[in-house]
């Protein structure tokens, strides 16, 4: 049982890390154009907003799908 719990939490950790890889990939392409000596303020804000807006879009889509289903 303890092992089960441990493996489950490791599984959650793995999914979290996989999401971070996916978002970094996506937001890198959206926010980073030129390779400079440091990520500047504009790029940092873009990266943070990119993650937040992607998750907003995700929630918006799921919510709207559920509303459509209720109307049926």
């Amino acid at each position: 049982k303890e092992l089960g719990k441990f493996l489950e939490s490791e599984n959650a950790r793995m999914r979290l890390q996989q999401s971070i890889h996916t978002f970094t990939d996506l937001c890198w392409d959206k926010c980073i154009n030129k390779i400079s000596n440091k990520i500047d303020r504009g790029e940092e804000t873009c990266l943070t907003n990119c993650v937040e807006r992607f998750l907003d879009t995700s929630l918006f889509i799921v919510k709207r799908l559920e509303e459509t289903r209720k109307k049926l």
């Binding site: 979290l16 971070i20 970094t24 890198w28 980073i32 990520i39 943070t48 993650v51 998750l55």
Partner: peptide, 20 residues
């Protein structure tokens, strides 16, 4: 340089996602 920037970006994305 690109490698350092990518790891920086990875850290920023991690913080943003975990805080969300």
């Amino acid at each position: 340089k690109c490698m350092d920037r990518y790891m920086e970006a990875w850290n920023i994305v991690s913080r943003a996602y975990i805080s969300r």
